[in-house]
Design a binder for these strands. Structure first.
Lengths: 149, 149
DNA sequence: CAGTACTCGTTGCAAATGTGACGATCTATT
DNA sequence: AATAGATCGTCACATTTGCAACGAGTACTG
């Protein structure tokens, strides 16, 4: 009988939580990304920017980054692209002239509304495929994880 | 009383499952990536390649990609880097000379062994912080998701 | 009010990633 | 055997991303 602490316990990548999380997240995101890419030609940063502005109305670029977990430069570039499509407009703030107040144009809002609907459907179908048990578990597991981070 | 089906149900990004999954996965991965980056100067593709080879022993580049969900070119580059560090060796297959059989060198295996240990500890601590309830839920939720994908 | 330190958003540059094509090799069909 | 088609791993190229520095503007400090 031995219990050798130096023995290698092999790591099974497909059981390793960080790997599983990443793979699952990436698969889900790719699926949804396919939708907004094909229908609207949006990138992920652009979609997140659109969604965040749609949700909050008027925000600065920094605030968009905070709410959507994106780096400054990603936001900056996404804002530039969306502005070029006339989906959002900028207005320099009068109180603090470093800041730009961003908001969706009517065209941007229309796209947002449509995509928000699609997003809800996508999520609903995903969750329904998980079954009500799987849904509860996934949500609870995510919530637990988020509480740590 | 009205129930207007055209009404916008706003999308709350921080409640949206694909976003939550991504954010959680990214946060967890970044934490772990910090470890192998600081201690060994490894990138994520390199870590995955090391882990996959450590797990299976001898593999082709294509097989590494299959097992670790990485694109050909990522694997190719990671293999090149690990070979430069003399952490893995290539041997052209005699039966099929397109193929290279890759395996870790003793130095590579040593690094793998250490990192596998660290990975287990990392995961154990993460799960312990989740509590046994959170752990069960997360694992069950992930399993349900994986079954769909 | 000067002077310093900070914040906002953008840009240049470098690193990482994805795409398509390639040479070499193997397999299948005839 | 000869040809056509597929597979393996790599490379050149374009795109995406992250990082550091910047100009413009604000806030703090004496």
């Amino acid at each position: 009988m031995e219990s050798d602490m130096t023995e290698t316990l092999p790591l099974i990548l497909e059981d390793f939580i960080p790997y599983r999380l990443n793979k699952a997240a990436e698969a889900v995101s790719q699926r949804f990304a396919g939708i907004y890419r094909d229908r609207y030609g949006l990138t992920r940063p652009e979609w997140r920017t659109l969604a965040t502005l749609g949700q909050f109305g008027i925000l600065t670029a920094t605030a968009i980054g905070t709410h959507s977990s994106m780096h400054k430069t990603k936001v900056s570039r996404a804002v530039f692209t969306l502005e070029s499509r006339r989906w959002l407009s900028r207005k320099r703030d009068d109180m603090d002239r470093r800041i730009e107040n961003l908001q969706l144009t009517p065209a941007g809002r229309k796209a947002y509304t449509e995509l928000a609907k699609v997003a809800h459907l996508f999520e609903a179908e995903l969750l329904s495929n998980l079954g009500s048990k799987g849904e509860k578990e996934l949500k609870a597991g995510l919530a637990a994880l988020e509480a740590l981070l």
